[in-house]
């Protein structure tokens, strides 16, 4: 087999050279090679959103991308958003609104919400935007649609919505 080119990946500001099996997903790289198990594997097929991380500021499913393809990329995981003694506004709001139960989808929900807030700030439309060319209204339906890539089987959706709204309305950085 040909020599696999290495990939230098920065995770939460820490660089790592990946030279291993090219089959390794970014998700398994984070969980195994980097020991960052905050990013969860729920389906491994882009169907649940539990593995959501931000790459160069954009949310993606880390299960459906190869680690080796991320040379030069900056990855932000839940651990990069905040730890128990330094929780971000979103993380705090998830706690106070009980925006989770079992907690397994939670890091993905929070990473997704953080990136969503940025997308809205940049004026991205969604499927439920009345006019895709206009400004998105920040109503509940918009947030629900934009968060629909993150399943929560415990059914904490109403509380997740409340947590996100609180942060968006406060203008705090996520």
């Amino acid at each position: 087999m040909a020599q696999t080119p290495a990939a230098r990946i920065a995770v939460n500001g820490v660089s790592h050279d990946y030279k291993g099996d090219p089959r390794r997903s970014l998700l398994d790289f984070l969980r195994r090679d980097f020991g960052l198990t905050g990013t969860k594997k729920g389906c491994d097929h882009g169907q649940c959103g539990a593995c959501t991380v931000m790459v160069n500021g954009r949310r993606i499913n880390s299960c459906l991308t190869l680690a080796v393809m991320h040379d030069g990329d900056e990855v932000t995981t839940i651990e990069g958003l905040g730890m128990p003694d330094s929780l971000s506004a979103l993380q705090k709001a998830f706690v106070s609104h009980d925006g989770f139960q079992c907690g397994y989808c939670t890091p993905g929900q929070i990473c997704s919400a953080a990136a969503m807030i940025e997308e809205i700030r940049e004026g991205w439309p969604s499927f439920v935007s009345v006019d895709v060319a206009g400004h998105a209204r920040l109503d509940d339906e918009e947030i629900r649609e934009r968060m629909s890539g993150n399943l929560c089987r415990c059914g904490a959706y109403a509380n997740i919505l409340a947590a996100i709204k609180e942060v968006m309305e406060s203008g705090a950085t996520s």
Partner: peptide, 14 residues
């Protein structure tokens, strides 16, 4: 609030 909340929202609950 759940006492396990801070661990869960930061991905630190194993």
């Amino acid at each position: 609030d759940r006492p396990d909340g801070p661990l869960k929202v930061s991905g630190q609950a194993p």
